[in-house]
């Protein structure tokens, strides 16, 4: 029984690690503050929650402590990113607007000409 819990815990930690990695990749690749915020927040909320839950499953006597931490992260993390995004908008940072993206445009125009 305990071993099964431990393996589930390791799986949680692994999933959390993957999410944290993807989040950091998003922060590196995204073009502006708002995109980076959403990448960072969503991925790091999920990643941190999953990692901490995993630790709680590996060490069952810590489970309730980790549960409290997870609840705190679930409240605080989206809230802080909301405040940051709102602050960025109020400081009039313009969102990234890419030029009209239309991959089929050329192809269909060429077809018309044909």
């Amino acid at each position: 029984m305990m071993e099964i819990l431990e393996y589930i815990g390791y799986a949680f930690v692994l999933i959390g690690g993957i999410f944290l990695f993807l989040g950091s990749l998003g922060i590196y690749r995204m073009p502006d503050v708002y995109n980076r915020l959403q990448a960072g927040t969503k991925a790091s909320t999920m990643g941190a929650m999953s990692t901490i839950m995993g630790v709680g499953l590996i060490q069952p006597e810590w489970f309730f402590k980790t549960l409290i931490i997870v609840i705190f992260i679930a409240i605080a993390n989206p809230l802080s990113s909301h405040a940051l995004g709102r602050g960025a908008y109020r400081a009039s940072l313009t969102p990234f607007m890419k030029k009209k993206m239309d991959a089929y445009d050329k192809e269909f125009h060429q077809n018309k000409e044909d």
Binding site: I75, L79, H82
Partner: peptide
């Protein structure tokens, strides 16, 4: 200068005692 959003107000009420 401006009031903060309702979300922040409700959330900080939750977190403040903690």
């Amino acid at each position: 200068s401006k009031p903060s959003s309702q979300l922040l107000q409700a959330g900080s009420k939750l977190i403040y005692p903690a």
